[in-house]
Protein backbone atom coordinates (compact mmCIF):
# COMPACT_ATOMS: atom_id res chain seq x y z
CA UNK A 1 0.00 0.00 0.00
CA UNK A 2 2.39 2.73 -1.13
CA UNK A 3 4.78 3.44 1.74
CA UNK A 4 2.86 1.14 4.12
CA UNK A 5 2.37 -2.61 4.27
CA UNK A 6 -1.05 -4.22 4.39
CA UNK A 7 -0.72 -7.42 6.40
CA UNK A 8 -3.57 -9.87 5.86
CA UNK A 9 -4.11 -12.70 8.31
CA UNK A 10 -6.56 -15.59 8.30
CA UNK A 11 -8.48 -15.16 11.49
CA UNK A 12 -10.02 -18.58 12.07
CA UNK A 13 -12.52 -18.22 14.88
CA UNK A 14 -11.22 -14.87 16.20
CA UNK A 15 -13.73 -12.06 16.58
CA UNK A 16 -12.60 -8.97 14.64
CA UNK A 17 -13.78 -6.55 17.33
CA UNK A 18 -15.01 -3.02 16.65
CA UNK A 19 -13.17 -0.24 14.82
CA UNK A 20 -10.51 1.35 17.02
CA UNK A 21 -9.80 -1.89 18.87
CA UNK A 22 -6.43 -3.51 18.35
CA UNK A 23 -4.61 -6.83 18.32
CA UNK A 24 -1.18 -7.73 19.65
CA UNK A 25 0.91 -9.26 16.85
CA UNK A 26 4.03 -11.28 17.69
CA UNK A 27 6.79 -10.52 15.17
CA UNK A 28 8.99 -13.57 14.60
CA UNK A 29 12.25 -13.31 16.53
CA UNK A 30 11.07 -10.54 18.89
CA UNK A 31 10.32 -10.92 22.60
CA UNK A 32 7.30 -8.62 22.79
CA UNK A 33 4.18 -8.38 20.64
CA UNK A 34 3.24 -5.12 18.87
CA UNK A 35 -0.16 -3.39 19.01
CA UNK A 36 -1.88 -2.91 15.64
CA UNK A 37 -5.34 -1.51 14.91
CA UNK A 38 -7.83 -3.58 13.00
CA UNK A 39 -7.78 -2.05 9.52
CA UNK A 40 -10.18 -4.34 7.69
CA UNK A 41 -12.12 -7.43 8.72
CA UNK A 42 -13.59 -9.20 5.70
CA UNK A 43 -15.05 -12.64 6.45
CA UNK A 44 -12.39 -15.03 7.74
CA UNK A 45 -9.68 -12.40 7.61
CA UNK A 46 -8.06 -9.59 9.56
CA UNK A 47 -5.95 -6.92 7.89
CA UNK A 48 -3.48 -4.51 9.48
CA UNK A 49 -1.85 -1.47 7.92
CA UNK A 50 1.66 -1.03 9.18
CA UNK A 51 4.49 1.40 8.88
CA UNK A 52 8.00 0.05 9.35
CA UNK A 53 9.62 2.08 12.13
CA UNK A 54 11.78 -0.46 13.97
CA UNK A 55 12.64 -4.13 14.43
CA UNK A 56 9.13 -5.33 15.25
CA UNK A 57 7.32 -3.71 12.35
CA UNK A 58 10.25 -4.69 10.08
CA UNK A 59 9.81 -8.36 11.02
CA UNK A 60 6.04 -8.16 10.52
CA UNK A 61 6.36 -6.50 7.11
CA UNK A 62 8.90 -9.15 6.05
CA UNK A 63 6.58 -12.10 6.79
CA UNK A 64 6.30 -14.48 3.85
CA UNK A 65 2.89 -15.31 2.54
CA UNK A 66 1.66 -18.46 4.29
CA UNK A 67 3.78 -17.79 7.41
CA UNK A 68 2.24 -18.35 10.85
CA UNK A 69 1.66 -15.34 13.07
CA UNK A 70 0.50 -15.25 16.69
CA UNK A 71 -2.19 -12.60 17.20
CA UNK A 72 -4.08 -11.81 20.39
CA UNK A 73 -7.23 -9.74 20.61
CA UNK A 74 -9.41 -7.85 19.99
CA UNK A 75 -8.27 -5.58 22.82
CA UNK A 76 -9.14 -2.20 24.32
CA UNK A 77 -12.06 0.12 23.71
CA UNK A 78 -12.92 1.06 20.14
CA UNK A 79 -14.81 4.04 18.74
CA UNK A 80 -18.42 4.72 19.72
CA UNK A 81 -20.30 4.30 16.48
CA UNK A 82 -23.62 5.79 17.66
CA UNK A 83 -22.79 9.18 16.18
CA UNK A 84 -24.99 11.32 13.91
CA UNK A 85 -22.45 13.26 11.82
CA UNK A 86 -19.24 11.20 11.74
CA UNK A 87 -16.05 12.71 10.33
CA UNK A 88 -12.88 10.61 10.17
CA UNK A 89 -9.66 12.56 10.72
CA UNK A 90 -6.44 10.64 10.25
CA UNK A 91 -2.73 11.32 9.98
CA UNK A 92 -0.13 8.96 8.53
CA UNK A 93 -0.42 5.33 9.58
CA UNK A 94 -3.05 6.62 12.03
CA UNK A 95 -5.55 6.08 9.24
CA UNK A 96 -5.20 2.33 9.97
CA UNK A 97 -8.53 1.92 11.84
CA UNK A 98 -10.52 3.97 9.31
CA UNK A 99 -11.17 1.52 6.47
CA UNK A 100 -13.00 -0.66 9.04
CA UNK A 101 -14.60 2.35 10.73
CA UNK A 102 -15.73 3.76 7.40
CA UNK A 103 -17.43 0.48 6.56
CA UNK A 104 -19.16 0.35 9.95
CA UNK A 105 -20.36 3.96 9.60
CA UNK A 106 -21.58 3.62 6.00
CA UNK A 107 -18.81 5.62 4.31
CA UNK A 108 -18.72 8.93 6.17
CA UNK A 109 -16.65 11.95 5.16
CA UNK A 110 -12.91 11.52 5.85
CA UNK A 111 -9.93 13.88 5.82
CA UNK A 112 -6.58 12.10 5.82
CA UNK A 113 -3.15 13.71 6.00
CA UNK A 114 0.12 12.20 4.75
CA UNK A 115 3.73 13.26 4.43
CA UNK A 116 4.14 12.17 0.80
CA UNK A 117 2.18 10.98 -2.22
CA UNK A 118 3.55 7.45 -1.68
CA UNK A 119 2.14 7.42 1.85
CA UNK A 120 -1.16 8.83 0.57
CA UNK A 121 -1.76 5.75 -1.59
CA UNK A 122 -3.17 4.11 1.54
CA UNK A 123 -6.08 6.57 1.39
CA UNK A 124 -7.54 4.32 -1.32
CA UNK A 125 -8.63 2.02 1.54
CA UNK A 126 -11.04 4.69 2.81
CA UNK A 127 -13.93 5.49 0.44
CA UNK A 128 -14.26 9.16 -0.56
CA UNK A 129 -11.28 10.26 1.51
CA UNK A 130 -10.05 13.81 1.02
CA UNK A 131 -6.27 13.71 1.03
CA UNK A 132 -4.06 16.45 2.47
CA UNK A 133 -0.30 16.42 1.92
CA UNK A 134 2.36 18.07 4.09
CA UNK A 135 3.26 20.84 4.56
CA UNK A 136 -0.49 21.31 4.94
CA UNK A 137 -1.97 19.56 7.98
CA UNK A 138 -5.39 17.87 8.18
CA UNK A 139 -6.33 20.09 11.06
CA UNK A 140 -6.12 23.10 8.70
CA UNK A 141 -8.59 21.43 6.31
CA UNK A 142 -11.45 20.30 8.50
CA UNK A 143 -14.87 21.13 7.01
CA UNK A 144 -16.92 23.80 8.79
CA UNK A 145 -20.01 22.90 10.80
CA UNK A 146 -20.81 20.44 13.54
CA UNK A 147 -19.16 17.02 13.29
CA UNK A 148 -18.68 13.97 15.46
CA UNK A 149 -14.96 13.58 14.91
CA UNK A 150 -13.19 10.21 15.14
CA UNK A 151 -9.45 10.85 14.99
CA UNK A 152 -6.28 8.79 14.95
CA UNK A 153 -2.76 9.97 14.20
CA UNK A 154 0.37 11.47 15.73
CA UNK A 155 0.06 13.11 19.13
CA UNK A 156 0.37 16.75 17.94
CA UNK A 157 -2.47 16.12 15.48
CA UNK A 158 -4.67 14.65 18.21
CA UNK A 159 -3.92 17.58 20.54
CA UNK A 160 -4.93 20.00 17.76
CA UNK A 161 -8.14 18.04 17.04
CA UNK A 162 -8.91 18.06 20.75
CA UNK A 163 -8.67 21.86 20.75
CA UNK A 164 -10.86 22.21 17.64
CA UNK A 165 -13.45 19.53 18.42
CA UNK A 166 -14.00 19.01 22.15
CA UNK A 167 -16.48 16.17 21.51
CA UNK A 168 -14.05 14.19 19.34
CA UNK A 169 -13.08 10.59 20.02
CA UNK A 170 -9.32 10.26 19.86
CA UNK A 171 -7.33 7.04 19.38
CA UNK A 172 -3.99 7.39 21.17
CA UNK A 173 -0.77 5.40 21.15
CA UNK A 174 1.59 4.40 23.91
CA UNK A 175 4.34 1.80 24.03
CA UNK A 176 2.71 -1.47 25.09
CA UNK A 177 4.32 -4.68 26.29
CA UNK A 178 1.19 -6.75 26.88
CA UNK A 179 -1.96 -5.01 25.61
CA UNK A 180 -4.15 -6.58 28.32
CA UNK A 181 -3.46 -4.66 31.51
CA UNK A 182 -0.56 -6.64 32.93
CA UNK A 183 2.57 -4.52 32.60
CA UNK A 184 1.55 -0.91 33.39
CA UNK A 185 3.82 0.18 30.56
CA UNK A 186 1.12 2.08 28.65
CA UNK A 187 -0.05 4.43 31.38
CA UNK A 188 -1.24 7.92 30.38
CA UNK A 189 -2.83 10.67 32.44
CA UNK A 190 -6.56 11.17 31.83
CA UNK A 191 -8.48 13.76 33.86
CA UNK A 192 -5.62 13.81 36.33
CA UNK A 193 -5.78 10.05 36.86
CA UNK A 194 -3.39 7.43 35.53
CA UNK A 195 -5.03 5.05 33.10
CA UNK A 196 -3.71 2.09 31.19
CA UNK A 197 -4.27 2.96 27.56
CA UNK A 198 -4.65 -0.72 26.59
CA UNK A 199 -7.66 -1.30 28.86
CA UNK A 200 -9.14 2.21 29.24
CA UNK A 201 -8.29 3.24 25.65
CA UNK A 202 -6.88 3.42 23.08
CA UNK A 203 -9.93 5.52 22.14
CA UNK A 204 -10.62 8.29 24.67
CA UNK A 205 -13.08 11.17 24.63
CA UNK A 206 -11.32 14.45 23.76
CA UNK A 207 -12.94 16.18 26.71
CA UNK A 208 -11.36 13.65 29.11
Amino acid sequence: MGAYTLLRVERGGLEPGIPGQFFMLSPPGRLLPRPMSVCLAPPGELAFLLEVVGPGTRALAALDSGAELAVFGPLGNGFRLDVGRPLLVGGGVGIAPFPYASEALGGPRAVLGFRSAAHAEAAALVPQAEVVLEPTYVTECLPGGEWDVLACGPEPMLERVRALAPTAQLAWEAPMACGYGGCYGCVVEVEGRLKRLCVDGPVLEAAA
Binding site: R30, L31, L32, P55, G56, A174, P175, M176, A177, C183, Y184, G185, C186, V187, V188, L194
Partner: peptide
Protein backbone atom coordinates in the same frame (compact mmCIF):
# COMPACT_ATOMS: atom_id res chain seq x y z
CA UNK B 1 2.27 5.56 44.07
CA UNK B 2 1.89 7.03 40.58
CA UNK B 3 5.06 5.32 39.40
CA UNK B 4 7.50 6.72 36.89
CA UNK B 5 6.74 8.95 33.88
CA UNK B 6 6.43 7.29 30.44
CA UNK B 7 8.22 5.91 28.41
CA UNK B 8 8.31 3.00 30.87
CA UNK B 9 9.12 -0.01 28.70
CA UNK B 10 11.52 -0.88 25.90
CA UNK B 11 12.34 -4.11 24.14
CA UNK B 12 15.99 -4.99 23.59
CA UNK B 13 17.47 -7.83 21.57
CA UNK B 14 17.87 -10.03 24.64
CA UNK B 15 15.11 -8.97 27.00
CA UNK B 16 13.01 -5.99 27.99
CA UNK B 17 13.48 -3.00 30.24
CA UNK B 18 10.82 -1.61 32.53
CA UNK B 19 10.71 1.36 34.83
CA UNK B 20 7.15 1.22 36.10
CA UNK B 21 8.29 2.54 39.47
CA UNK B 22 5.98 0.48 41.71
CA UNK B 23 2.74 2.13 40.61
Amino acid sequence: RDGNPPVRIAETDVGMLNSIGLQ
